[in-house]
Design a protein around this nucleic acid. Structure first.
Lengths: 259, 259
DNA sequence: GGTCGGAACTAATCTGTGTTAGTCGCAAGA
DNA sequence: TCTTGCGACTAACACAGATTAGTTCCGACC
């Protein structure tokens, strides 16, 4: 009953006890997957919906010449798309970025769940909308944000997404991505990620060590990243977990923070 | 009955006459919107689902300092998300990139449509999956593709998406985007778009004038872009419309085409 | 407790793309 | 017909970030 998927969906709608029971029953047995192992390969026929219970995973596409782009991150409570079983072939792969615990929900069960509960149906729809919005925000980052803004924005997003499901401890939270992982997510090289991270540290905005992130000055970080959490579409209030900066100044034609 | 939305959904599932009739009835009266006008503004409460019947629109986000990123393109038959009415606030705006004809489906009607027909329900779900896949592919383009590959890839995508709904004429199709539009979609400047376009022309790969695109050498263009149409997830066969190159050589560790 | 491999970090150099500042052509309106 | 404005196009120069080639650090495993 207290699994991250339930907590996640609770941020969109108020689930009844019956809903959470059904959800818990729907989850298959937990599976452990080691770090750096593909959970799903490109070209697979996706038979079931995978739910991340613990650890981080990432969707990615890789070119023949080795270039790789991580296209989204799956944190605890995230699913590899509630409708994925409708497709015949995965167009991308999913890798465990840390050791990961997964549960599966079969396509059949998923359809049952949604047809039995309007609330769950709505929750999954909202979840899909939120995922789409995150993907759009990544597109914006890769297209128009500088290295510094891009990294700052991602760190804001990851902190908030974790705070929402109770995984943040005030201004700090897990951040198990390596610098090469960050590079593949942000469309850069690990060398440049390192430089940019140093800049953020030197500016006193974040601390990041032993896989743990602390937002030292959330206000200035949000402002630098022009981070507007609206896009995460959490309707019920969990956001920020004590780290909600005041409204950004809309008059600022440039990020308020420079380094 | 022969509207682009129907044609689009037909690429995913086989719709019955009853389905297409219901769809046609669901569409509200057509609305004309002039080029460069916002169809939906950021912050709006989305009451209904907009469907593009004619013309091109684009989702975008704009920063206070003027930087703009077009996050996706809406072609005829595309909807601004079948579930959008669940949200309270648009996190991005939608602009008419050409004069556009729209129809609306209210949230209520949309829910009716889907609850009355399993097939329509599945069609809309598949449509959402395809849209998500396109968004991921854009993320890959912005993150890891060079200017040349990026532009080539987008042109392939736009040609194929139009071919699918019967808007392409063999290897050529409408392409009403201006170079500044392309720049905002590809995360670049119009100056560089122009340079890159000249390169593609000089290589004899495409012709683009008076808002019309012709793929002069689709095989080499697909190969340059490493374009793999799987991600569009059209299960029924409309793709290519006579311009389907043979399978790309998976052994090629580098794009086969250089300039 | 050593060694091994990958992640963190640094520095020098290179380059793809941005910036700035134009010209030209064309289509819409006055 | 003349203007106006925007899109297509070009050139010179600047710079953010890539590339290459390391060294150091740390944790996992023998």
């Amino acid at each position: 009953m207290d699994n991250p998927l339930t907590r996640k969906l609770q941020t969109y709608v108020r689930l009844t006890g019956a809903d959470t029971d059904r959800l818990a029953d729907a989850l298959g047995p937990a599976r452990r997957i080691g770090a750096r192992i593909d959970i799903v390969a490109e070209g697979d026929d996706p038979r079931a919906v995978n739910v991340v219970l613990d650890g981080w995973a990432g969707r990615y596409k890789q070119f023949a010449d080795g270039r790789r782009q991580i296209v989204s991150l799956l944190l605890p409570g995230d699913t590899c798309d509630p409708n994925i079983f409708l497709l015949e072939r995965m167009d991308h792969a999913i890798i465990a970025l840390t050791p990961v615990t997964l549960a599966q929900i079969s396509g059949r069960t998923m359809q049952d769940l949604r047809s039995r509960s309007e609330t769950l149906e709505e929750a999954f729809h909202r979840e899909m909308l939120a995922v789409a919005a995150i993907q759009r925000e990544w597109t914006v980052s890769l297209g128009r944000r500088s290295a510094l803004e891009r990294l700052a924005h991602l760190l804001c997003e990851l902190h908030l997404r974790q705070a929402t499901i109770g995984l943040a401890d005030g201004p700090s939270c897990p951040m198990p991505l390596t610098q090469p992982d960050l590079a593949d997510a942000l469309g850069q090289t690990s060398v440049h990620i390192n430089r940019t991270l140093q800049d953020l540290r030197r500016a006193g905005l974040v601390a990041l060590r032993s896989r743990r992130l602390t937002l030292l000055d959330p206000d200035r970080l949000w402002s630098l990243a022009q981070f507007d959490p609206t896009y995460l579409h959490h309707t019920r209030d969990h956001a920020g977990a004590g780290v909600r900066p005041r409204e950004a100044d809309p008059a600022a034609a440039r990020p308020a923070v420079r380094l």
